[in-house]
Design a protein around this nucleic acid. Structure first.
Lengths: 129, 129
DNA sequence: GTTTAAATAATAATCATTATAAATTAGTTA
DNA sequence: TAACTAATTTATAATGATTATTATTTAAAC
């Protein structure tokens, strides 16, 4: 996909893709940097930021911020709920046909076309409740 | 509500409440600071931050961050959709009985109790589309 | 009016992100 | 395979938002 859109395929970008696109934990930039450094010790933080923004721009990632402002990256770009534990902060995705139905009903009601969504539900997870 | 919970009622807090609780535009800290300064020129930015966090803690406000990380304050604490224009950034609230129904169905499905939600739909608004 | 703990203001410190510029490299072409 | 070039990376400086600190002020209780 990078090559298709005219961007170069570098080992740094591959390493970041490998980790982030397979991650289900909505990692922060810091987490991503730590992880990539183990594989690629000389990588610069600027490259991490740049690459994450690029992957977001070409639609491979979704960028969002928790209510404390911390940036997170979600490799699940299909409509889903982010269940966020108020206590431990863990985020679990939840997909269901109900969500797609709800969104398309709403879009019809609004007479607007949706170009994206980010849905956060705050809960106490099974460990914390 | 401040007094009930043992916090002092100061003119600074009143000024911030007056503006933020009646605002429908999900203002940023900067916007709030600018607005309050006109009424209360000596107010400090630290007081703004502190008060907003306090009002959030006691449940009068909801704090969230746009995907670029900018903090916003929402005085509408009942379940609603935030329709965010991808182009101009304007946020419009949308309330509907469908949303409450959807959320309670989901909560039943998950066997978890929801303690809050923040729902963002990205669109192009009527001016921008 | 006094008292006292809480709140404010001013400013310094911190942290995350972006900008800059020199060095490196992927991908193209000869 | 070597040379070329524009894109990318790295290191670091700059920026901007938020939080911490501390002296001063003040709301609320007595």
């Amino acid at each position: 996909m990078l090559r298709e859109k005219g961007f170069k395929v570098t080992p740094q970008r591959l390493a970041i893709c490998r980790f982030v696109l397979s991650s289900k934990e909505h990692p922060s930039v810091e987490k991503i940097y730590d992880k990539i450094q183990k594989v690629y010790p000389t990588i610069s933080l600027a490259t991490i930021y740049q690459t994450l923004h690029l992957l977001t721009k070409i639609g491979l990632l979704q960028e969002f911020a928790l209510c404390n402002g911390s940036l997170r990256y979600d490799s699940n770009i299909s409509p889903h709920l982010n269940l966020i534990c108020k206590n431990c902060g863990k985020i679990i995705d939840y997909e269901s046909e109900k969500i797609n139905m709800f969104l398309s009903e709403i879009a019809k009601e609004l007479e607007l076309s949706l170009v994206g969504q980010h849905l956060e539900l705050y809960v106490y997870c099974n460990q914390c409740k």
